[in-house]
């Protein structure tokens, strides 16, 4: 066990709500996630467009045996189109509402 060096606000065994508030607020000020994290919509959009294209092409080229296995439905075609639409939806959303610029850090930030 080490002592509470550098954190004089903690006295004895009591760790109060003010301690948590102060510690987390200070960390929030220095946090980099909001400024540097990439936009997930681009990844979902990209992956589903790629999957959509692969599965749709599979559906177009499927033989009758595959369609029979899937109860007479060309499931690859329909699933592929669905995934493609979802991917396009995310990309359009990203295009219409681009990532907002990062909020300037609070004044107590380093």
């Amino acid at each position: 066990m080490t002592d509470d060096f550098g954190r004089p606000e903690r006295t004895g065994f009591h760790y109060s709500e003010q301690d948590v508030q102060r510690e987390v607020t200070e960390l929030e000020g220095r946090s980099a996630t909001a400024a540097r994290i990439f936009d997930l919509r681009r990844i979902i959009g990209g992956l589903f467009v790629v999957y959509g294209i692969i599965v749709t092409i599979t559906g177009i080229t499927d033989s009758q045996a595959e369609i029979d296995k899937a109860q007479g439905i060309n499931i690859n075609l329909w699933t592929g189109i669905g995934m493609l639409l979802l991917g396009v939806f995310f990309l359009v959303w990203l295009w219409l509402r681009p990532t907002p610029p990062p909020v300037p850090p609070a004044e107590e930030a380093e």
Binding site: L27, E28, R30, S31, A32, T33
Partner: peptide, 22 residues
Amino acid sequence: GIGFAARRSVKTSLDFFLSGRS
């Protein structure tokens, strides 16, 4: 890829454990 790309957003322990509450 997501892991590598998210790496540069980790600066404080709050980023690592709670995504910087953001």
